[in-house]
Design a binder for these strands. Structure first.
Lengths: 120, 120
DNA sequence: CTGTATCCGCGACGATACTG
DNA sequence: CAGTATCGTCGCGGATACAG
């Protein structure tokens, strides 16, 4: 808990770092993107929409996003099980920012056709 | 070169991914942030401003940023050597977006004081 | 002063199998 | 259907030494 405070103080220095902490992971944005288009998605639907993601990563990323208050997980007590994911208000509030970033990205794409790389 | 096209098409699907490709590295934003404050910085000045960065990473990140057209490297033929880094127009055009992201990050910080984590 | 070269540890991530 | 458990690998990034 004291560790946490230290870390927080470090991050406080830069809200951007904090933001990247929430959505900087490899799959966070793809997931949010999918939820933007579809509003509500089940686990397997997400797995299909977010191309290339594995169970491990999807499950883990969803947990992080939920813990950070960006998505909501609703579980129905049925058989077979059904779980639905959607964006919280906080999650939705990110969308305009994402659009800004996308706009900038698009501008950059026009400028230089060559990617230097860092494609994980 | 054909590889590159393939990759580009993949990234084209999402300008955000393209953007993160340019500035999603661990040190890209800290470096840009430093250059925002100081306009022009020498190698060792950057190393001091960007706390925690190593030679390997600074050098590498600078190369990527330059190759992507976000910063300019000016080398003076003197002894001892002097090299100055600064933002290009493209680099500066990122700053408003960064501010937006920072604003969002700040909002999120207020909402939840607890970081779930993903602190690289 | 401004980097490059080398070596290496560790954590992110993936594949696969399995469970409630 | 919706995940968890386990294990392996891969490469990012750090430390250190050295070069122009």
């Amino acid at each position: 808990m004291d560790d946490n405070r230290e870390v927080l103080e470090k991050i406080s220095a830069c809200p951007v770092a904090y933001a990247l902490n929430l959505i900087g992971g490899k799959w966070q944005l793809p997931i949010i993107w999918a939820l933007k288009q579809n509003v509500v998605l089940r686990y397997n639907e997400l797995k299909r929409k977010v191309s290339g993601i594995t169970n491990t990563m999807l499950s883990q990323s969803l947990k992080e996003l939920e813990a950070n208050g960006l998505i909501i997980r609703v579980q129905y007590m049925e058989i077979p099980p059904r779980v639905e994911y959607s964006l919280t208000e906080a999650g939705k509030s990110l969308l305009p920012v994402l659009d800004e970033l996308a706009k900038w990205g698009a501008e950059q794409m026009e400028r230089s056709v060559v990617v230097t790389d860092r494609l994980r």
